[in-house]
Amino acid sequence: MIGLVKAELRKLFTTRLWWIMLIVMVVLVGVNLAFIIAFAGVSQNGGPALPKRDTMEWAQVAWSVGSSGGIFVMILGVVMITSEYRYQTVTGTFLTTPRRERVIAAKLITGLLIGLLFALVILVFEAATVVPTVLLSGGEFSLAETRIPQVSIGILASLALYGLFGIGLGALVRNQIAGIVGAVVWAYVIESIFTAIPALHSVGKWLPGGAAQSLMSIDIDTGLGRPEWLPAWGGALVLVAYGLLFAVVASATTVRRDIT
């Protein structure tokens, strides 16, 4: 199995997509951070303002931006499996490892590892931007009173699980375009609807995005009522369950199909 995971990592690192995704993700997180830096302490239309830049409350909000990297890991997971079908490399993969469920298992593990790697990059990037911002604004950076460690663990866990989720989704869908479009629509449209409308929260917290939010353990008041997330461990379990469910269903259906 270690050999198979190594093979999957080689597949990913010998093509260009992974670092393109990594750069795009860091840029997106950077843009979000830039807004949060720019609008710190600014009150708009009398609404609740972001905390001031020199406070640890602000640092905590800024830190949680990292969770937006999940979609990129999910897409990478989808591509890791659908590109095998698109370029027909799946033929060579299944010739080398004819027991196909072993390939899927190796890909799930690799998806987790890639999620962790991307999360680490985000955390380093956040540390390199948020900490200086607080210090330059005259504040003092101290983790003691913040939830930043929990948020960091949440980012690590949610990105890793999004990787797993993407692999499961890709195995089920097989078609690359359908998989990516499905992932993006799901993350940005369907999940947003369920998180934005309070009446749907009871369902939304069981969806992958809601489950990932619960890992951050941050209450963000959207002005429409406080979302009630699952406990962090519950969110993690929900994400794992989705990924494994997809993978198991896929192994029993699409993965077993004839390769012609």
Binding site: G3, A7, R10, T96, T97
Partner: peptide
């Protein structure tokens, strides 16, 4: 790289 992937997967 293509062959190296197959090598590691096949041990």
């Amino acid at each position: 790289d293509h062959l190296r992937i197959l090598c590691v997967a096949a041990g």
